[in-house]
Design a protein around this nucleic acid. Structure first.
Lengths: 213, 213, 213, 213
DNA sequence: GATGAATGAGACTTCATTCAT
DNA sequence: TATGAATGAAGTCTCATTCAT
């Protein structure tokens, strides 16, 4: 336990420690004893703060998806054309992954171990986020910015795949910063989805790389 | 145990059954007892065929990555321009995911539970596959088909993310067949990476959708 | 579980019970389940107190050798000629074997099942005890009490053999008490090692039997 | 499996290999699989030759005690005074321990794992051997060579302890040969048991060391 | 005589959870 | 609120033995 952590509440310390441990070893690779140990807590302290180990897992999931969902709504409601909002939601997701990489890893690796209501609640919010993406894409098609040949559902999944997959390979100390990666991804996606006859328009130029990386 | 399975060897039956169970519940969500039960085998039969539960997990991983790697090399060595070979490797990966979806799910969800040498062997082959993709992209840049602004490493990760993520959402009985999804993904990727001045060329036309879906 | 045992700690109860069971059936002849049952404990209780079954075995070994070693040092450091101290260390060992017969049996029968560090720690203490005996014998040779023809190392092994072997045949309810056996053994050993010209000296008389048994 | 072993029968190879393995790791530390492997045999081969693993253990025990018992009777029936025969039985035991050290180790360490009839048969022969020793000692007392103060039963146990214990510490490549050790042990024992007024007699001189080691 | 795949009882151990203090 | 000893269900794995070939 690091000194700084002592000031935090037991609950906070358990959450911080378990996110890191789950990221590293997976939910089933970490025992409650280990969490107790690393967080400088106790059995009693743990079960006083969390009904069960799964509730801890749920809390981690819910914290992340709740935060992400809120950001998603902000992007969706922001001013701008669908393409602009698409670009901003992609950037935003990536920044969130960078910032909460451990939580994201737990989110994508261990969601299967949520049961019953816990699973449903998280699933519902995740679906809600997909809906946001779908709405942006459909609005883009309606506004004739986005190519209509690409089925929005598949397109959404392609975008999520590209973006979410970063939790597997992206490293903070790597060659590219998250902002640079965001620039590249935005270029790739906008280039794919933007109608060809719009690509020369000045207003879309900011989405494309100009040998800047 | 289904009747058809009886003819297979114990090892085969255990592999088939465990791939499905691991896909559904995760490696740690399935006990050896459950595998025994479902495969119509026994404790002894299991441990006669596999040194440990982890060796079974490794076997599933190795089978998939070995198959995929072989296909990857075939695509790489095939005739055609880098763009053509890029398109074919994408299609191929997706067909593999469709065909071996359960194995793929295990591969991406439970690789973290491989330890020591088991992990290293799988990691090495996975990295080898990434190398194939990188070489194709770099050859495309050299041959001036692929835009040089996109760093190949990030581009490769974007492609893998888009393609591999399908294991999460793709369903055989879904609205789109794997071939249709492959067409869409190829369109998205080629559209992103192909130099703009080449997009009108007749020879690249087959990579782009024409409202056919 | 006997009533009296309930007041003891779980750890204590497990130790007492397992020493008796190991003596009777050998380390591998007793299961953890059996120890649990007999000690009125539980799986969790057992593993809360001992990291493993082997750690329990180690604890039994270490307790005995630690006690014996301490007694050995006391005898070595006590006042008296080497012969007197030799006699007292022999008596002391036998009293320890009588008192802790079950532990001694485990010590000599199951030490081979200690692994790694556990084995080394016990081995080191056992060797330390041998060193004490060797020092006494060498001091006796130097002081011209003990015959110099007998190599101390072999002599020490002969003495240990004679004494330690009692764990196999000695029984508390047998014909001879441990004190009587000690008298006999001391007679045998002193008679063997004492220089012949000293045997008539008054001061060595107490080491020899006078038809008293 | 060494080449030389191939010519031996399966039964012989299993016996040789298992004696060595049991000596090293103890009966319960060696599995039938390991014996199969090391002896270049098979499950079928093993169970064709031995009804069970315990029967193998019994065979090892019985071979050794049978051989030893036969030698014991020879010593007992040989010409000579009780003291001479006592000396020869001690030498003989030690030579047997040297020659069959692995079997002896198994004999003393793993006899407890023999059950029922197997145990009884071995126990009976072991007791028979003790009887031989007792008879020699009693004859020595009757013939006034051996001191009557030493109870024969305890004396026998002291002698067996001294001698049998060698299986624990004696090593073929050690500083002293088994013959030298036998000389020392005979000196120790005869010196202890021989009446003091006989020690100067010429005929007992050969039993005592004269700085020859 | 020999083979080795298969058996299944039972071994050791882990671990989320409870509860008296 | 917090503690940590204790619980016991469930997990992975071992191993002597059997039996169809």
């Amino acid at each position: 336990m690091e000194k700084e952590e002592i000031r935090l509440s037991t609950r906070e310390r358990i959450l911080n420690v378990s996110i890191k441990l789950f990221e590293e070893k997976g939910y089933h690779g970490v025992s409650v004893d280990e969490i107790i140990e690393e967080s400088g807590s106790s059995k009693g302290g743990f079960y006083h703060n969390f009904k069960s180990k799964e509730e801890l897992l749920f809390t981690i999931h819910d914290q992340y998806i709740q935060y992400t969902l809120a950001r998603g709504y902000e992007c969706y409601k922001a001013e701008g054309t669908p393409i602009e909002r698409l670009a901003s939601i992609i950037r935003d997701l990536l920044i969130g992954i960078d910032k909460y990489k451990a939580s994201v890893t737990v989110f994508f690796q261990d969601y299967r171990y949520l049961t019953g209501e816990n699973y449903k609640i998280v699933e519902k919010k995740r679906d809600e986020y997909v809906e946001i993406m779908l709405k942006i894409l459909e609005e883009g098609i309606k506004s004739k910015e986005i190519r209509s040949e690409l089925p929005p559902k598949i397109l959404a999944m392609a975008i999520f795949g590209m973006v979410d997959w970063t939790y597997i390979w992206y490293q903070k100390e790597g060659q590219y910063s998250i902002e640079e990666i965001a620039d590249i991804f935005v270029d790739i996606i906008i280039n794919s989805v933007l109608k060809n006859d719009l690509k020369d328009k000045e207003r879309y130029a900011p989405f494309f790389l100009k040998n800047k990386i």
